[in-house]
Amino acid sequence: MRFMYKNKQKIINFYCFALYALYALFTLTILGYGVYFLEELSFSYIEIGLTIGLSALISSIIQPLIGMLVDIKQYSWKEVLIILSIIMLISSLLIFIAPNSLLILLFGLMIIILGCIYPFLNQGIFYYEHYGIKTNFGVSRGFGSLTYAIFAIIVGFTIINNNIMIINVYSLMTSILMLIIVYLLPFYGNINTKNTNTKKKFKNNVLTKYPSFTLIFISMCLFMIFHSIFMGYMINIFENVGGNVSDISIANSIIGFIEIIPMFLFTKLLKKVSAKKLFIIASIFYVIRSIVILNAQDTMGIYLSIILHIFTYPIIIPATVHFTNEIIPQEDKNEGQAFMGSTITIGIIFANLIGGNILQIYNVNLLLISLVIISILGCIFALSSLLYKD
Rank of each mutant, 00 (worst) to 15 (best):
A275C: 07
F323Q: 00
Q360Y: 13
Q297M: 10
I281N: 14
T343N: 07
N363I: 02
I317A: 04
F350Q: 11
G355W: 11
V287K: 00
A338K: 00
I344T: 05
A351E: 10
A282H: 03
F285I: 06
L304D: 15
Q330C: 02
G355I: 04
V273T: 13
Y313E: 07
Q297G: 02
V321D: 09
T312V: 05
S342C: 06
V292L: 09
N334F: 02
P318R: 07
E331H: 14
T312M: 02
K277E: 15
F311P: 05
P318S: 11
Y286W: 13
I361E: 15
L278C: 15
Y303W: 08
G347P: 01
I280L: 14
K276Q: 14
I284Q: 06
V292D: 12
G356Y: 02
Y303A: 10
I302F: 05
I302R: 01
Q297N: 02
V364A: 01
I349S: 15
L308K: 11
T345C: 12
L304Q: 15
G336A: 11
I293A: 03
M340C: 14
L304Y: 07
M300L: 05
Q297Y: 09
M300P: 01
T345A: 14
L304E: 15
I344R: 01
T343G: 12
T312Q: 01
Y362E: 14
N295Y: 14
F350D: 05
Y362D: 07
L278W: 10
A296F: 03
I291G: 09
L359T: 04
D332L: 10
I315M: 06
I316R: 00
G347V: 01
K333T: 12
Y362N: 09
I358R: 00
I302Q: 02
I361K: 15
P318G: 01
G347N: 08
V287L: 11
S290N: 04
I327F: 12
L304H: 12
K271W: 08
H309A: 02
I291L: 13
S305E: 07
V292P: 10
G336Y: 12
N295K: 08
E331T: 03
N334M: 03
I348A: 04
G301E: 01
I306M: 10
Y362F: 14
A296D: 02
A338V: 00
I284C: 06
G356P: 00
L304M: 15
N295R: 05
N352I: 04
I280T: 05
M300K: 11
T345V: 02
I361P: 11
T343V: 11
G356A: 03
